[in-house]
């Protein structure tokens, strides 16, 4: 008997479905990561030193260890420490959210610090509470600085999310491995997967270039990619 090792259209559709799942996972991780990152980034600029140290330690640890190790820790750690068994999707989402939060917190921090001190003084002079000052004066101006590098991080997250295939979540990379295990044509399939990743990431980067070019002038140094990825040792 001869094994059928040809690649069918259905195989590619299966892989494309994986691409959809990758995007869905990354969007969710980005949403949760942004919320967490906003909180941690704000803590980082807080006047309370304990909040500052906790958030600083979080950012330092997550950005100083590889994503793969963090994913393994969530994968093996959740059942061992908390005696809960969660789905592969939850594991992947938790891992990516924790990872994204640390990087986004650094971007948020840089954004908040880019707002001129005079703005805060003016808000105080108008009699705003510190929440009002943060909500309607600092945050809107900071967001303008935060969004472009955060979008850049989203593109990087899509590429990094290929690592969740290793802990068994069936997304783009994992689904391609499943097709390969039947067809034995790794080069063809992985090339196709690379093309899919390329189309997504390059497309998004072109969108970001077009959309964020207009207000590039008023983006200060904080949004330069290497400034936001820098690990600060203080």
């Amino acid at each position: 008997m001869k094994l059928d090792t040809s690649i069918y259209l259905l195989d590619w559709l299966f892989i494309l479905k994986g691409a959809g799942i990758t995007l869905f996972l990354c969007l969710n991780a980005m949403v949760f990561g942004s919320i967490l990152g906003l909180i941690i980034g704000t803590m980082r600029t807080s006047k309370l030193s304990i909040l500052k140290y906790i958030s600083g330690a979080y950012i330092y640890i997550i950005r100083g260890t590889p994503l793969l190790m963090q994913l393994f820790l969530v994968y093996y750690g959740l059942p061992v420490f908390f005696r809960i068994i969660v789905s592969a999707y939850t594991t992947a989402l938790v891992g990516l959210t924790v990872y994204a939060a640390a990087y986004l917190a650094e971007i948020v921090k840089a954004g908040l610090q880019s707002v001129d001190k005079g703005q805060k003084d003016a808000a105080k002079a108008l009699g705003m509470t510190s929440w009002q000052e943060f909500r309607s004066i600092v945050l809107p101006q900071a967001l303008k600085v935060i969004v472009p590098p955060a979008f850049g991080f989203f593109i990087a997250l899509i590429k990094d999310s290929s690592l969740v295939a290793i802990i068994g979540f069936i997304e783009l990379t994992r689904s391609s491995r499943m097709v390969i295990s039947r067809t034995y044509q790794p080069f063809t399939i992985y090339l196709g997967v690379a093309v899919i990743y390329f189309v997504i990431c390059y497309g998004l980067s072109i969108i970001s270039q077009k959309y964020f070019k207009a207000n590039r002038q008023d983006i200060p140094k904080a949004s330069q990619p290497w400034k936001t990825v820098a690990i600060k040792v203080s």
Binding site: I155, K159, D160, S162, L163, A165, T173, I180, P186, F187, Y190, L191, V193, A194, Y197, F198, C201, Y202, S205
Partner: peptide, 16 residues
């Protein structure tokens, strides 16, 4: 614009 993982897979498994 492609993941490092896929690049490694292409070289290690793909070329096989």
């Amino acid at each position: 614009n492609t993941p490092l993982l896929i690049q490694m897979y292409l070289l290690y498994f793909g070329l096989a």
